[in-house]
Nucleic acid binder design. Structure first.
Lengths: 169, 169
DNA sequence: TATTGTTATACTCTATAACTATA
DNA sequence: TATAGTTATAGAGTATAACAATA
């Protein structure tokens, strides 16, 4: 990065020029051109908007989005290895360690080492984990309801989910 | 973070237990439960998938996704201040400095200081910037076409963009 | 030799406070 | 005093290589 050289307008850049006239701001707002219909861009903005909203609620529980996903997978599947969960969520196993450490520290789930293959850690819910997941699921439901309203009804939500499914690998 | 204490299963965590039996992996794959229909989750996964694909193409030009958005806005609007562009893209002006530094270093756009208010920097394209944007727009079009195929036609794409627009602030 | 979990590390992106120069 | 751009910095998220224990 060139942050430290930000004042040196010259090195490789075009010569720094000064304006002869005061440019006019576009009256009708900014023209986003192809961005406004680009799926890449629309996905990014929509995702940021939705995630930021939900994250604030999760933070009240001391959790992050990834924690929520992990709790759901572990609660609904028995016999998952640590790396199974990581892979299912698209998280590298190296980065997954700290996530599980956090959830275990909070008493929400447990590692249980396999007897038959002592390299493996199975993931198990605790009762605290289950009851917290119940609470969070309620909050999630409320957020989803607000989203459905913004989208214009359940049918629109189902359409959106269907379309997003077609995109994903 | 508790990374450095990862081996100390005890401090605040539940006692580390060992499995008495070998848990069975879910035969039909993992049950994602509410995640599979959660808009938050679907958005995140779809966005990652699309962005990763497009990013690889952008990297061939030595650019990042934000660079692409900036070039489009500057090319299609005259008289935008640096902070106008940052705000339009939801990027904090502090983080925007390095982005503009990079684009200026590459000769794709220029800062031009206003004469009437010497605090403001107007953003201007260079001819190199325009021709590179033309090239990238072509690549973007190809990606968008592939996406349209995956979605099942232009109508589906328009539907998706419409729904995503309703979500965003 | 290969695999699971782990550590260490680096790089990007994002968020905040404070500085400067101008107004 | 307020604003535009900038700096410095810290926090997440993510990616890669390498190691220990185990198979």
């Amino acid at each position: 990065m060139t942050v430290g050289l930000a004042f040196e307008h010259g090195r490789g850049r075009l010569p720094y020029r000064e304006s002869d006239e005061t440019p006019l701001l576009p009256k009708g707002g900014i023209d986003y051109s192809i961005l406004s219909e680009a799926v890449v861009y629309r996905l990014r903005r929509a995702q940021l908007s939705v995630v930021n909203d939900f994250n604030e609620s999760l933070l009240a529980f001391g959790l992050r989005p990834a924690d929520f996903s992990v709790l759901i997978l572990v609660a609904n599947n028995t016999g998952l290895k640590q790396s199974d969960v990581a892979e299912a969520l698209g998280i590298q196993r190296a980065n997954f360690v700290a996530i599980i450490d956090g959830l275990e520290d909070k008493g929400l789930l447990q590692r249980r080492r396999s007897e038959s293959d002592r390299r493996v850690h199975y993931m198990e819910m605790t009762s605290e984990g289950r009851s917290m997941l119940d609470e969070i699921s309620q909050v999630w439901k409320e957020h989803e309801e607000k989203l459905i309203d913004r989208l214009g009804g359940e049918k629109a939500r189902d359409q959106l989910v269907g379309l997003l499914r077609r995109i994903q690998d």
